[in-house]
Simulated assay, not measured.
Amino acid sequence: MKEYQFEVCANSVESCLAAQTGGANRVELCAGIPEGGTTPSYGEIAMARKVLNTARLHVIIRPRGGDFLYSPLETKIMLEDIEIARHLGVDGVVFGCLTANGDIDTVAMKELMEASHGLSVTFHRAFDVCRNPDEALEQIIELGCERILTSGQQPTAEQGIPLLKKLHRQAAGRITLLAGCGVNEKNISRIAGETGIQEFHFSARENIPSGMKYKNESVSMGGTVHIDEYERNVTTARRVMATIHECSSSVARQDR
């Protein structure tokens, strides 16, 4: 029987706890979810490390939203954040760098990999906007990353099934593919069955209404970018369990 690993993209310590309660093997702690994830604060990482005892803690190292072409200054910031994460006792870090031509920035990556020695390293979804995924896969293996988080260069992992299947075959056990983006209890079985991939990344979040009784909804903290400030999108143990159960149940049915 296949053994699956489930990673939850957690946007807070609260979400980390829910992921652990729901049975996740690992969490990826991120701030700035609307931007695709940015490095969380010192305090957020420290508290997550204190409360997680069964789920492993990985932290995204990404100084800003936008592209993955980093300046020398931004690379130095990432190096500092890796040292902070190490100091706080994380199990792994998550990052990825590209050149202006859409290739893997092996120079920057080697520097970050050296700083991450002893930590598990995931190359994140910068992979999904690289120019040549086949070539990139080989370069990332050569760099020594443990896994690649990818949606198969499509908006969701379900849409990316054809490339995910191809990359899984190309990897041939040399690196782990972590299928992510849009993975949920409704499609995880299909993705697992059609690609052969055994690690999954999902958020399992739900909208939680604010406890505020007084609301001034005419003012947005984001200025012209309006975000509903009177609800929070957080991971729930219920959805984590449902997603894991669906994947595990599907495998059990296939093994009968």
Score class of each variant (00 low, 15 high):
46 A>R: 11
139 Q>W: 00
134 D>K: 09
168 H>D: 14
247 C>P: 05
58 H>T: 15
200 F>P: 05
166 K>G: 01
47 M>Q: 11
101 N>I: 04
93 V>W: 08
139 Q>T: 02
186 K>L: 12
133 P>N: 08
165 K>N: 13
71 S>I: 06
157 A>V: 07
117 H>L: 07
217 E>I: 13
149 L>E: 11
105 D>T: 12
6 F>Q: 10
81 D>F: 06
80 E>S: 09
157 A>D: 01
75 T>M: 14
131 R>F: 02
79 L>N: 02
149 L>D: 13
205 R>A: 03
226 H>P: 00
26 R>T: 01
145 C>E: 05
94 V>S: 05
133 P>F: 06
3 E>P: 11
33 I>D: 01
95 F>A: 07
86 R>K: 15
104 I>F: 04
102 G>T: 07
185 E>A: 14
132 N>R: 13
221 M>G: 11
135 E>T: 03
73 L>H: 15
51 V>P: 00
208 I>V: 14
216 N>H: 10
106 T>L: 15
58 H>D: 14
242 A>Y: 05
150 T>H: 09
122 T>H: 04
163 L>F: 13
1 M>S: 15
153 Q>Y: 01
14 E>K: 03
15 S>M: 04
20 Q>K: 10
133 P>R: 12
213 K>E: 11
230 Y>D: 06
226 H>T: 09
228 D>Y: 07
202 F>Y: 06
245 H>I: 00
155 P>R: 07
121 V>K: 10
120 S>F: 12
202 F>I: 02
14 E>Q: 11
250 S>R: 07
168 H>F: 11
39 T>L: 12
243 T>Q: 06
33 I>L: 14
11 N>C: 13
107 V>W: 02
164 L>S: 03
247 C>L: 07
92 G>D: 04
234 V>Y: 11
255 D>Q: 04
242 A>S: 10
69 L>E: 10
51 V>W: 02
109 M>C: 14
14 E>G: 08
138 E>S: 08
80 E>N: 08
123 F>A: 05
147 R>D: 02
67 D>H: 10
110 K>L: 09
243 T>S: 09
182 G>H: 03
251 V>S: 10
143 L>H: 06
159 Q>L: 15
242 A>W: 05
99 T>M: 03
21 T>M: 15
83 E>G: 00
